[in-house]
Amino acid sequence: MAVSDRMTTIDLFKAVQGSDIAIAFGNAPLVFGIAAQLFHISGIVLILTPTLLVALRIAGTGLVDYSAAQLERKSRVYVATGLLFVVFSGLFMLIPSATLYQPNPAFQLKLILLPVALAFHYGFLARIAKEEFSQKWLAKIIALFMALLWFAVGMAGRAIGFLAA
């Protein structure tokens, strides 16, 4: 494919914004936009709170009657539900205004932080929460870092509105 034929990121976002589904989302009544925001916030809480509880338990505090591994297993369904909420509500907000989001540095940062947070969450959390994970100091550092990473995703998301204004 010739260089000039390649689709750039902005072309992709323009195509998304011009799609029928984007137009339908954009013309949806305001109540859908409000509902999307509420689902987005609920999703953030559903991800952050269980993750924090596991991170706190790994650090030796919080719900100490349960092991970190038990809490991590219990947290999975809430985090997965939260991710579904944030992804679908996020797409509902993003698609009709995709070209506004694309150049926003906070959005770009969020797009970098989100996969990193997901990789840490699904790559490390279950492993470091296990009783037999011997390097407890490393587990505490990773757990703290992961919690901070999720908060950074949230802060970057919140910053989108301020940088776009």
Binding site: L48, T49, L52, G154
Partner: peptide, 22 residues
Amino acid sequence: VYPLVEGIHLLSLAFSFGLIVL
């Protein structure tokens, strides 16, 4: 500072609202 304060107000819900729901 204002966006930071608003961000903390929102994300602290994970501790306040999230834990009270639990």
